[in-house]
Design a binder for these strands. Structure first.
Lengths: 240, 240
DNA sequence: CAGTCTTTTTGGTTGTACCAAAATCGGGAA
DNA sequence: TTCCCGATTTTGGTACAACCAAAAAGACTG
């Protein structure tokens, strides 16, 4: 176990190149947002064929360390937590084709947010509460405009993810939003429905403001579970 | 916004092949654990050059949909949540080179586990409590053997991640274990230290068994924060 | 039937070549 | 001079042919 159980036959040239370029990117030798050197330059630098170089580039692209639109020079992207979640998302999407996958993901979201509202109620700073209050106001102001309401809805929940001041949660929020979006966007919307959601948000906010974690958690649970029930119908077949 | 904002110049042949192979893998046409067809077969099937085929294979490999050891036939891997977390992990590792990254990750773990022990205390079933009890016993039995203690330690925490019965958390536990392992393994160990950790586990377990979520959460916080303080010293420089 | 040796298959890599689109350059028009 | 447009160069996308070494498969022998 403790032995280096990875013979790790790193005999693949492209892997070496990937590693080296990764180093350069995180170290800033290849600055963020700058274009990657041309493939023909890289093959000279690494003494490898273009095939190998392109393989390395493809790997970096899949990792999210470079943005490569089809006919353009790849752009270097210094990795952050968004990058991490994005690369996970590409595979995750395959698991969201059936309802079970969506349910698992949504359940995890509810679980996280329950903890987040507790955290907000117990340790949220004054600025956090104010940010929440502002997001709530924006949410209310958008009730008539379902398109805008959707965005302020996401933003309200987003504030919760910022309270721990941990970039992982910020990224996670964006992840949830983008992964669930395709399923959520087909949910029928209306000012009445928006109003219901706004009121739920208000309940959550008030519980947090009043420093009542149990109440906050319950309000959030009710809100998200109701939303789930609401979208259930939009799925094709049955579900658990 | 609502317009298909993705011109998505799908001019890349390999992308099409990737998609098609992905379909085959999730649909089971290419069974899990079976070897991928030889590259030369694939180039005939898709009417593309080997260059393109290999690019597609590289992409699938990076996504975790096939396991490709250097000189062997790639093995098809039907994606699950482990796959998702693994592919995230490859990028995440780059962010764990500095202490801030490790701290962020560890903080998130503490946050999750605090919620998990609450959940266990409030809604854990009898079997869950029993599993926890068994893991605790194994943990105690391994106090003298630091190597084995480490494993039972991870296993004890792992039980917590299984209580929500959501495969995402199971995968997340494996993720945390493997991502943090390189930093944790350099922590000095001793039977005395193991005993301290075991007692902390026992406190957590008792609080859960007694259905006291607040107590469970606090016991877990103490345990994990103490562990963090303990490994702080093993890092090179200062930290926040 | 087991174990060993030979042949075939297959992945890893290189090199070259061609095309089309992007980036660059340069000259002419305003 | 400045700006715009067209010609030229650069660069990414794809294809084909070939070679090597290791793996897999098959044949052969004890």
């Amino acid at each position: 176990m403790s032995a280096p159980s990875r013979p790790e036959s790193s005999a693949r040239t492209s892997d070496r190149i990937v590693q080296e370029l990764e180093r350069d990117i995180v170290a800033g030798v290849l600055p963020d947002r700058s274009p990657l050197p041309p493939e023909r330059d890289l093959m000279q630098r690494f003494g490898a064929s273009r095939t190998v170089i392109r393989e390395a580039i493809a790997t970096l692209s899949n990792r999210g360390l470079i943005e490569s639109r089809p006919r353009f020079r790849p752009i270097v992207r210094k990795p952050d937590y968004e990058t991490v979640l994005n690369s996970a998302g590409e595979v995750l999407r395959l698991l969201l084709r059936d309802v079970a996958g969506v349910r698992n993901l949504y359940q995890s979201r509810v679980f996280i947010e329950r903890a987040l509202v507790r955290e907000a109620a117990l340790h949220g700073r004054k600025e956090d509460i104010e940010a929440l209050s502002a997001a709530l106001a924006a949410n209310e102001a958008a009730i008539a405009d379902s398109q805008r309401f959707y965005r302020t809805d996401i933003a309200f929940h987003g504030v919760l993810y910022q309270i721990p001041h941990n970039p992982i949660f910020t990224a996670l929020h964006h992840g949830y939003a983008s992964w669930l979006a395709p399923h959520w966007e087909r949910m029928p919307r209306s000012p009445e429905r928006n109003r219901v959601n706004f009121l739920a948000h208000r309940d959550i906010f008030r519980a947090i403001r009043d420093r009542d974690p149990d109440q906050a958690e319950e309000a959030l649970s009710n809100h998200l579970n109701a939303a789930w029930e609401y979208v259930r119908g939009t799925f094709g077949t049955e579900m658990g």
